[in-house]
Design a protein around this nucleic acid. Sequence first.
DNA 1: CGCTCGGTTGATGCACATCAAAGGCTGTGG
DNA 2: CCACAGCCTTTGATGTGCATCAACCGAGCG
Lengths: 232, 232
Amino acid sequence: MFHLIEKSDIEKVCQSPIFQDIRREELEKALTHARVKTLRHREYIFRAGDSAQGFCLVLDGALKLIRHSPRGEEVIMHFALQGDLVGALLMNQPDQSSYPISAKSMGPTRVLSIPRETYRQFWQTHVEIQKRLNASLYQRMSNIQDEKTMARSPLRMRIANLLLKHIDTDSQSNNKSLSLALTRQEIADSLGVAVESVIRVMSDWQKDGSIQKSEEGPEVLDIKKLLAHLEA
Amino acid sequence: MFHLIEKSDIEKVCQSPIFQDIRREELEKALTHARVKTLRHREYIFRAGDSAQGFCLVLDGALKLIRHSPRGEEVIMHFALQGDLVGALLMNQPDQSSYPISAKSMGPTRVLSIPRETYRQFWQTHVEIQKRLNASLYQRMSNIQDEKTMARSPLRMRIANLLLKHIDTDSQSNNKSLSLALTRQEIADSLGVAVESVIRVMSDWQKDGSIQKSEEGPEVLDIKKLLAHLEA
DNA sequence: CGCTCGGTTGATGCACATCAAAGGCTGTGG
DNA sequence: CCACAGCCTTTGATGTGCATCAACCGAGCG
């Protein structure tokens, strides 16, 4: 089994919220004809409008799910990290056969690509899986709603909120790095504002020592200062 | 069976996308201990933070799902019309026991209130139901994403988009009314902008004959003109 | 070496927010 | 029945946060 998939990858899959505590044989069925795809920086896995042949699960790295605004700017809907599913919800829609969104890698990324047929055979009929799909969709929805709630708040609040949401909870060093390397452009695209505005806010924060730049994207130095920006 | 629920209501339930083509006996199980609640204008069904004892299905009228921004304004996340489920997704979350959102009636409204226990007993274990929950969640997500895509577009485009989405497709009269009566305040809360801004845009449109006011909220007179506002 | 990409800064302008004032309409309680 | 409060709407005057435009820097890369 899994002759095409490395053992270490299988372990990653087992740890994803979708497959936790799922029996081995079910896992094997769920991953029938799955194969690993390796992507470099800024490659598309699929584009909005492509025929939806399958979906995928992130093994390493990260993806951004994007649409293009009428004027051609990228709008980022979601960041998919290790263990996240991408495009799975679409598989349920019988009539819909093309992706409503594009998926693009952020840095070197590996995903498990799973054909639609496997979804039909196994995922669609498995209650527990459907429940978990629901749960993950619910999480995503909550995030978008949190953001929408701040629609009329000043930009600095919305940036602070975004940074705080992405602090990597695993690291216990004093400098909290983010769980993914975000460029200022990506922060802007995610909030639907101009890059320059994001830069102006964040360079102030660099000066007052709230955050700093590193190779791995922004690092939060002083959480309290960021929380202060969320108030009033 | 259904001694507490009117026959006409049962029919409405059968027509909702969740229960279409579901066998009668399953329907009965799914609605165990359900009861009809009647609401007047602007009543809360539940508030954000309330302990989540159950969920409901809209029989008549409409609900708005709202949060409150830091400054106390309402932010509207979703309009739930006849046949829509509200709060059902939350039932899957084991840890989560309080609503993340408030639900408020828009005009006289009747809902079917279903206890959490019924969800646990029937909904949770039923694949087809879970699939349909997924599908409806997916729809909702698509809507929010459509809106987010227009985050940087001028306000008139976003209003035009919202109105066009809510045109009642059933009516074939020349004046297209909306599927629910939206006040300008609600349009503003839904887009996250100030009422006055919405009013300024919409009164221009009244003057040029694109729309008009009626007792049942805005009516679209000239779809083409609205579509024109979506361009450029 | 030219290219693209990410970051930065300053000057300028505009779309929308904010504040203020007022009128209509509905429901409610004295 | 009237007074009053709350909600929705409207219009005008004024302000400002962010967008836009332009220019430039440094790093990586074919």
